[in-house]
C-alpha cells in the first residue's frame, strides 16, 4: 500500500494532522525536560573545577546545537518551498525561524551566565559564542526580510534564497571565527574534552531530546496559525469548527 505522502503536504490535511500531533510532542517534551533537570541537578556530581556553575551546560549545549540545526532545517524547508513551489514548506520555514532565534538567544544568555563564573567576564569572544551571535544575526535578517515584504509569495521566495545563502555561509563563518579566535586568544577551556560523568551525559541527552520535541511542537503550533492567516479566504478554513463558533466563546 503506497503511502501518499503528498496528501499531507497540502495545508488542508496538514492543519488537522498538526493539530493532533502537537500534544504528542508537547507533553513528552515537558516530561523529558523534568527528567533531564532532575538528573542534572540531583544525580550528577559536583564538578571539581567549577563546582555548581557547570550545571548550566545542560541548557547551553542543547540550545546551541538546536539553534544551529534549526537554521539548517529551516533552510531545507525554504529550499523545498523555492524548488517545488509548495507553500506549506515555506510556511514551515517561517514557523521555524522564531524558535531557532530564541534558541540562539537562550544559548547566548546561558553562555554569558556560564562565562561569568568560569572566565570572569559576561561576554568572552570565544569562537563558539561569537559564531552563535552571528547565527542570531542571520536569523534576525531572515525574519526581518520576510516581515518587510507584503506579498507573501515574494516574501517566502526571497527569504528562502537568503536562508540558502546563509546556510552555505554558516560553515564558512564558523571556520573563520574559529581561525580568528585561536589566532588571538588560543583555545579556551574545552568542556567536551573532560570526560563527562555518565549522569551528565544522561541529563544532557534528556534536555536535548526535550528541546527537540518542544521545537517541533512549537513549530507545528505556529504553522497552524500561519495557515489560518494565509488561507483566511478559503472555504475549508471557514468550515472549521473553531471558526463556526460565535465570537464570544473561547476557541
Amino acid at each position: 500500500m503506497a503511502i501518499n505522502w503528498f496528501k499531507y503536504s497540502a495545508p488542508t490535511t496538514f492543519y488537522g494532522l498538526a493539530g493532533k500531533l502537537i500534544p504528542y510532542f508537547a507533553w513528552p517534551a515537558a516530561i523529558l525536560f523534568a527528567i533531564g533537570i532532575y538528573i542534572g541537578f540531583f544525580v550528577a556530581p559536583t564538578d571539581a573545577t567549577q563546582s555548581e556553575a557547570y550545571r548550566i551546560i545542560f541548557l547551553h549545549v542543547p540550545a546551541s546545537i538546536l539553534s544551529m540545526f534549526i537554521y539548517l532545517i529551516m533552510a531545507g524547508y525554504a529550499a523545498l518551498g523555492l524548488i517545488f513551489n509548495t507553500r506549506l514548506s515555506s510556511m514551515m520555514a517561517q514557523a521555524l525561524a522564531p524558535t531557532g532565534a530564541l534558541f540562539a538567544f537562550v544559548s547566548l544568555w546561558s553562555g554569558a551566565l556560564w562565562g561569568k563564573p568560569m572566565w570572569g567576564a559576561w561576554w568572552v569572544w570565544d569562537a563558539r559564542l561569537t559564531s552563535e551571535l552571528i547565527l542570531l544575526f542571520l536569523y534576525l535578517g531572515y525574519i526581518a526580510l520576510h516581515a518587510s515584504i507584503e506579498d507573501t509569495r515574494r516574501a517566502d521566495k526571497a527569504s528562502a534564497l537568503l536562508a540558502i545563502v546563509g546556510s552555505v555561509n554558516v560553515p564558512i563563518i564558523y571556520f573563520s571565527v574559529k581561525w580568528w579566535n585561536t589566532l588571538h586568544q588560543g583555545a579556551t577551556i574545552k568542556m567536551s574534552g573532560t570526560s563527562m560523568h555518565i549522569a551528565m551525559q544522561q541529563a544532557m541527552f534528556a534536555v536535548m531530546a526535550a528541546c527537540w520535541l518542544y521545537a517541533i511542537a512549537v513549530a507545528l503550533a505556529r504553522v497552524r496559525g500561519i495557515i489560518l492567516e494565509r488561507e483566511a479566504n478559503t472555504q475549508w478554513v471557514n468550515d472549521l469548527p473553531e471558526v463556526k463558533q460565535m465570537n464570544g466563546e473561547h476557541s
Partner: peptide, 12 residues
C-alpha cells in the same frame, strides 16, 4: 542587516 553577517569572514 542581511549582508553584514555574511561579510564577516572577509572582515576577519
Amino acid at each position: 542587516l542581511l549582508v553584514l553577517p555574511l561579510c564577516i569572514p572577509v572582515l576577519i
